[in-house]
Amino acid sequence: MNNPDVQPLTDTLHIPQPEEELPHPMEEFLRTERLPHIWCSTCGIGTVITAFITGLQKSGLEREKVAVVSGIGCSGRAAGYLRLDSFHSTHGRAIPFATGLALGNPELKLVVISGDGDIIAIGGNHFIHAARRNINLSIICINNFNYAMTGGQAGPTTPIEANASTAPYGCYEFPFNLPHLAESSGAVYVARWTSLHIRRLTNSISEALLKPGFSFIEVISPCPTLYARRNRLGTGLDLMRFYHDNAKIKHGTDTRKLDIEYQDEIIVGKFLDKDKPTFLEKRDDFLKSKLGDKFVPYMGPKA
């Protein structure tokens, strides 16, 4: 076998090695082995994930200090695709799970990425109480106006007149105005964007990540398979064109005026950015004033 006259194959043949591929800029934060993802073609959730990753890179936070929690629904899958500490919790309970993490490890920055059906419908009570306590959470609520994963039922954000599978003649319930709900419950940072306003959304996410306290970002996202199809609005691309033509940026608008009518103007922008002591700061200050030196604050698992 070891004949010296026969040169080994590798020396005689020049085998071209494939050029080393440059990594995609989001690859560092994606579980690429699970891609392509399950979201429909033209769904806006993938774009929101891009905005989140870019915002996280921009904010300069260490990845060990960030954890993502999501609930049930299309956008609940976000936690599974992000290469961060992440948890896919039960329906509506993303905020309580994140609250527990935030209290158990005060160093962590918690991000809840979930849908309107998860955060506002079944998790509505958790949402208002986390906002009231001003717990150190960033909420990214992807609003597609219906319960998309279960078949397009009407939810608490479905606009009046919009068709849904449980509202065949159109929805007649008054929907929630999410920025107003967040502000009146006690949030310190409130913004609304559509999945088309990608750079402004990225800036908002990095601001919210660096903001101590309860920050809330509503992202209007197209649902091509259920909301757009049932209402004959075309594809997700047509909805993106609709956002392009009908979204008006008005920073600092009074959140009471931010109701969304069916296929009408959408006011987007940053509406609130104020400073308020967070739950842990307030607790430590208050107990220190009552107990004096006897009070030893909890500094996290490593302390």
Binding site: M26, P36, I45, T47, T50, A51, R199
Partner: peptide, 10 residues
């Protein structure tokens, strides 16, 4: 690249 929902453009 930023708008692509599938992370397929670089």
């Amino acid at each position: 690249e930023l708008l692509c929902p599938e992370f397929s453009i670089m």
